[in-house]
Computed example of a mutant assay.
Amino acid sequence: MDRTPHSLLPSIQLDIADWFSDHARQLPWRSADCSPWGVLVSEIMLQQTPVVRVLPRWQQWLERWPTPAALAAEPAGEAVRAWDRLGYPRRALRLHAAASRITEEYDGEVPSTVAELKSLPGIGDYTAAAVAAFAFGVRATVVDTNIRRVEARLFSGLALPSPSLTAAEMTLADSVLPLEEAGSVRWNASVMELGALVCTARSPKCSDCPVRDRCAWIAAGEPEPTYQPKGQPWAGTDRQLRGAVMAVLRAASTPTPWDVFFTPPVLLHEASLSKPLKHLHALGSEPSRLERILEDLVKDGLAERTENGLALPA
């Protein structure tokens, strides 16, 4: 429920935009000369991944593949290899598939409308809106985790938004978005940055907030969240094991024989083991679990069986 009077909205929009002008991080995908392709790559990479990890990989990616056509011309496996340790490597496959579609159907130019962007493989509502807004200046409602959190506190008086995006949140986000295109783009970027730097999930820096005096959550006495966000464990999970297998495949210039994944290290020549393979064996996974992981990677398109073993997709 929106608890902030809409008469305050113009001043809120102005003050957050002014704060953004003074405090926004200088990120390369925000540069005026960044291509729409650069913006699209950044949005895919930034999903569930901190900016500090994305920056070097984004720069390397754009140096190697400055256009969608450049990426589409190489095997999907090279995209997965270059993804390195960003995590959730299926994003690399989706980006490669999107580049191929852009090259084939849009003459190598990233489309500018939300509808066209959503037609690309792996591009959902958020990414389509973000690229349309930040690459083309389109008025689109961008709702990421940071924006949801800021708007939940500022307008609804909640410590945190609901665990998953609701229709009510989208209605609220639509209603507070400036009508003018340039203002809407600025709002999306400003609120997102405010959530990333000030209105954080665990330790919000309320004293630094430019709209603290109009925040419904502050006015309500800073009530506690109605639920506790769950972190994402890593050690001992399937995600850790998948990551270890992917590291082996990225480091290998030739297919890795299937049985090498299961052979005890004592039966292999130490010199023949790559560092990623040593790490995989050190995890001590049950063979049945490891086999399931390998099969799942093949099913997900992140690896493929060849006559000589397992490899990144061609």
Rank of each mutant, 00 (worst) to 15 (best):
A189E: 13
D213R: 14
P178A: 06
R186Y: 01
P163E: 13
C209H: 08
A152T: 06
L194C: 04
S175G: 03
E151H: 05
V211M: 06
T200A: 09
S203H: 14
L177G: 00
P163N: 11
I147Y: 02
G195W: 12
A159K: 04
S207C: 02
R186D: 04
W217R: 11
L154I: 08
L177D: 00
N146E: 11
W217Y: 13
A201E: 15
S175Y: 02
R212M: 11
V198Y: 02
L165M: 14
G195F: 13
S203R: 15
S207D: 08
E193I: 07
S175N: 05
L197C: 04
W217K: 09
L194A: 06
E151P: 00
C199R: 08
P161H: 09
G183F: 01
R202S: 15
L160A: 08
V198Q: 03
W187A: 03
L160M: 09
E180Q: 12
T166Y: 08
L179P: 00
F155C: 04
L160D: 07
V211L: 07
P161M: 10
K205R: 15
L154V: 08
G183N: 00
A201C: 14
L179K: 06
G157P: 07
V198H: 02
G183T: 01
D174I: 00
M192S: 10
N188K: 07
A182H: 05
V191T: 12
S207P: 00
T200G: 05
S156I: 01
L158I: 07
P210E: 06
V176G: 01
V176P: 01
R148D: 13
E193R: 06
C206I: 12
C199A: 14
A196W: 07
P178M: 06
A189G: 01
L172D: 09
P161S: 10
D208K: 10
W187R: 11
V198N: 02
C209F: 10
R214F: 10
V211D: 02
C209S: 09
R202L: 12
T200H: 07
S203T: 14
P204I: 14
N146Y: 11
A201V: 15
C209G: 11
S162E: 15
E180G: 01
P161C: 10
T166A: 01
W187M: 03
L172K: 05
V150A: 13
W217D: 09
T166I: 02
A201M: 15
V150D: 12
G157S: 12
L165W: 03
R212D: 04
S175V: 01
V185R: 13
A152P: 04
L197I: 08
L172M: 12
S184I: 05
L197S: 06
S164R: 07
R202I: 05
S184H: 04
L160K: 01
R214L: 14
E193H: 08
P163I: 12
G195S: 13
L179F: 00
E193W: 05
F155A: 02
D208V: 00
D174V: 00
L197W: 03
R202V: 07
A196I: 06
